[in-house]
Amino acid sequence: MAALRIAIFASGQGTNFQTIADAVREGKLDVTIELLVCDKPSAPVIERASQAGVDAFVFKPKDYPSREAYESEILEELRARQVDLIVLAGYMRILTPTLVEPFMGRMINIHPSLLPSFPGMNAIGQALEHGVKITGVTVHYVDGGLDSGPILAQTAVAITEEDDEASLTVRIQAAERELYPEAIRLIAQGTVTIEGRRVAVGKR
């Protein structure tokens, strides 16, 4: 079976991009990273992509008349590279059906909470404010809603009495670096099926 062809979307530092790229380089993940998509020309993730030998499609949203306009151009880039899976890794743009619908069931995101708890922005702060004892990380499929798609994988992170947002963020990010490559590996193995809201992982 040919290696899964992925595109990573990111807007910032690119720590999850680096984790995935390292896993590929070390032979731990049987995928090829075909493209980085980035909406911020000054983002450090662009240099990470360059170092990894990954092409980057970098754009400024304000140069386009609408979200649909730049997403149409991104879609052309993805199709030209025969991308199988979109991996959102800190991409801070709202997606429209222009991009979501062609990749329904083939686009995943990572979120710093145990969904469906604390969707949206500042999930770590939300968890602390609510006083929960356990939060975590979720990898889910993108369905066009707010962190509402079928859940592929989760891992729990305990909250201690001493935690503040900074300390909890460190442990959440460490959990992300463990979970995201594993979730991509499951998809690459061809063992994942989506049935409504349920995601099943079986043997190939």
Rank of each mutant, 00 (worst) to 15 (best):
L128S: 01
E34Y: 07
G202H: 12
G27Y: 11
I159Y: 03
R79E: 14
A69P: 02
I187H: 05
R81Q: 03
F118K: 10
I110Q: 07
M104G: 13
Q18H: 07
Q189D: 14
L36R: 02
K28C: 09
L95Q: 09
E165H: 10
S50M: 13
R25W: 10
V132Q: 03
L88K: 01
V139C: 07
D84W: 11
A174E: 15
Y91S: 10
T96D: 08
L78Q: 05
T15H: 07
F59G: 02
P112R: 07
A175I: 03
V87I: 11
V37L: 00
T32E: 15
K203L: 14
D55A: 15
I184K: 00
I86R: 02
L75H: 01
D22I: 06
M92H: 06
I187N: 04
R5Y: 03
R67W: 10
G90E: 00
Q82E: 15
L29G: 02
A3R: 14
T98H: 08
L168I: 02
R67K: 15
V100G: 11
G105D: 03
E101T: 15
E68I: 00
I151F: 09
E26D: 15
T138W: 00
Q51Y: 12
N16S: 09
L168S: 04
L179N: 00
R79A: 12
A52P: 11
I46F: 10
G190H: 03
V192I: 04
V199Y: 10
Q189G: 15
I86T: 01
L95D: 04
L146G: 06
D163V: 06
M107C: 12
A153T: 09
I86L: 15
Q51I: 13
E76N: 13
T155I: 12
G202A: 14
G202R: 14
K40Y: 14
R93N: 11
G90T: 00
L186W: 15
G105M: 07
N122P: 10
I8W: 04
C38V: 04
L115H: 01
D143R: 01
L4H: 05
L36M: 08
V54C: 11
E71H: 05
L88W: 01
L78C: 07
L88Q: 02
D55W: 10
D30Q: 13
V139M: 06
G190R: 05
M1G: 13
P61M: 04
G120D: 01
L78T: 04
V58Q: 06
I33F: 10
